[in-house]
Structure formats: C-alpha cells, structure tokens
C-alpha cells in the first residue's frame, strides 16, 4: 500500500513467552483499546509503527510529484484549481502522518533525511510517470481508490494518533477518487483519441495499482506480528480482492477494458478472478529501479536543499523577534 513491505520488528510471541507488560499490552489491543503516545509499548511495536507511518507520510509527499507535473497543463481553469486543491491535500495528509509518527519519538527532520538517504521508502506507485492528462484521471480513480481501500481499514488501527490521522484523511480522500473518475468519464465519452488515451492510462496503471497492496500474504513475512498488534488490520490479498471487485464495474461503466485476459467473475467466491501483477517488477521498483525513482528522489532532495535558506531565515527572524520582546519587557 502506501506502506509496503514494512518490516515488523519482533517475532510473534505466544502468551507464555510474553512478559507481564507485553501480555497487558496485547490484552488492551485485543479489547480494541487505542494505544496513546505516553502509554508503555513494546519497542518492536514502536519501531514498526515509525516505519509504517513514516513510509505512509513519505508516500503522500512524493505522491504530489506525478500530479504536480500536470498543474500547469490542466485542460481548463476549473480542472487546474481542482488538481491544485488535491495536491495541497496530499501535502496536508503527509503532515498529519508525520505528526503521528513524531509522537513515537522520531523527529520530522530525521525522517526526511532517512527518505533522502534511501533508508526509508515510499510507495512503489509514485515511481511511474504521468504521461498524459488521462493519467491524472487514472491516478485519482485507481491509485486513490486503492489508497482509500487501505486507509478505511486503517481507521481501526490500534495506535490512536495513526487512527485519528486516517479518519481525517479518509474524509478528504473520497473527493480525490471522484475527481479522478470524473476526468475518466469525460475522456471515455470524448473523441476516439481521448478514449484511447483513457484506455492507455488504464493499461499502464492497472498492474502498478494492484502492486500497491504489496505481495501476497503467503509471501509476506511481516504480516503476522503487525496483524496481532493491529498495526495492520486487513491482509494484502483481502484488500486487493476488494479493490478489483469494486473497480471492474466502474471500468465497465466507462466502456474501458481492464488489461487482463483472465479477469472473470467467480460465483463461488463472490468476487473476480484476476491475474497477479509481475512481482519481479514490483521488487525492482522498490529497489530503486523503477522508471522515475531517480527523478522523484532528486526532486525531493532539491526541494529540501533549496528550501534550507527559507527555513533558517524564519528561525533567525523568530529568534530576533523573541530577543526584542525580551529586551522590551
């Protein structure tokens, strides 16, 4: 998802192996209580959350880049204003999440530096380019759609600040998916060439969207402990299935074809059969070899370095004003 392959620290312990504090902690989680920043928590819980929330936050921030690419080229002033509002929301979502991570004792700058060093990751999806305006539609429809699928579940996550950030984000996010679908409707009902662009966007972004949920749970070594701690509340496969089931009728309405020959309704499971994405590609993209990894990181580093004089300038101004106030008193 926005947090993929988050390494969970701590092997899953049986009740007998837990010490008294760990047992009491697990009991609170099992009872559905939220864990708050000042509460005692196992070190592994804290570390896993920092990784997951941090990766989620970085994804919101890096996710501004593929969409920001089209702000100056949006086809109408209204579409431009909408896209600008959406990209601004992504910045806000990143900030809510950084704040949630900071309650776990990690600083904002530390997380930013770890992203720039490549030590922390962001979602694989943002390493794909947005080549045409139809891609902006497909990103809103598919990428935000997949993100919502995950984030709605995460509202029930056990860590209070993370859960509250998710509630807020979910409230704002459905506008993102709708504006994307609205672009797709316009394109799909437009000229034959516009419809081809819409189909092309779906062809290129379908499998990367499925990858957002992460590899199959059978191969995910990190899931068990995160599920027990309710850091993760649904499995990757459950969410991916839900996403496909929700999206297929939406594609049909648009008159577009999902690029999967094996796609078929399975009456027995009450969901669609579908092809898995190319997991080798997923691992390559995560390892830094996607089409846009280098560009994305370069843009983030440049923004951080070019903004240093501004951050420092405001601190100098604040210090000067504080000193003047002291002198006046």
């Amino acid at each position: 998802m926005y947090a993929q392959m988050v390494q969970s620290t701590g092997t899953l312990k049986t009740r007998e192996e837990m010490d008294e504090r760990e047992r009491a902690f697990q009991d609170r989680i099992d009872a559905g209580e939220k864990i708050e920043p000042q509460d005692w928590m196992p070190e592994g819980y804290r570390k896993t959350l920092v990784r997951q929330i941090g990766q989620h936050a970085h994804s919101e921030i890096v996710g501004q880049l593929p969409e920001g690419n089209w702000i100056t080229r949006a086809p109408t002033l209204e579409r431009k204003a909408i896209l600008l509002a959406k990209v601004q929301d992504e910045a806000g979502h990143g900030l809510y999440l950084y704040c949630a991570a900071e309650t776990l004792g990690v600083s904002r700058d530390e997380m930013t530096e770890k992203l720039h060093d490549g030590e922390m990751k962001y979602s694989s999806i943002f390493n794909y380019p947005t080549l045409t305006w139809a891609d902006i539609g497909a990103v809103g429809w598919l990428v935000d759609g997949a993100a919502i699928m995950n984030q709605v579940a995460l509202q029930r996550t056990s860590y209070g600040p993370y859960s509250r950030a998710m509630v807020r984000i979910c409230k704002e996010e459905s506008f993102h998916q709708r504006q994307g679908y609205s672009i797709m409707m316009k394109m799909a009902a437009g000229t034959p060439e516009q419809k081809r662009m819409a189909q092309d966007a779906l062809d290129r972004l379908w499998y990367p969207s499925l990858m957002m949920f992460g590899p199959s749970d059978a191969e995910s070594v990190h899931s068990a402990q995160s599920m027990a701690w309710k850091i993760k509340v649904s499995t990757n496969d459950e969410l991916r299935q839900k996403f496909v089931d929700q999206t297929v009728p939406q594609a049909e309405y648009l008159g577009l074809t999902i690029p999967d020959d094996k796609l078929a309704w399975n009456e027995e499971k009450g969901g669609y059969n579908f092809s898995e994405p190319d997991w080798q590609e997923f691992h390559d993209v995560l390892a830094g070899n996607g089409p846009c990894n280098a560009d994305r990181m370069a843009a983030r580093r440049t923004a951080w370095e070019d903004g240093a004089w501004y951050r420092d300038g405001l601190v100098a101004h604040a210090n000067k004003r504080a000193a003047q106030r002291m002198a006046a008193e």
Partner: peptide, 29 residues
Amino acid sequence: SSEWPLWEVFIRGQHGLNHRHVGSLHAPD
C-alpha cells in the same frame, strides 16, 4: 539547520463550541 518547534493546534469549529485539539505542526513562531 535547527528544526522548527512543534505546536499543538486547537480549532473552534462553530460559534458557541469549545476549541478542540486537532493535531500539531511545526512552525518557527
């Protein structure tokens, strides 16, 4: 650079209601 300090934010949603904690953010002043 030194990191901007952290602030807690409280917002009054409507006239007549209390300010409520909504989250935090960094700012120089």
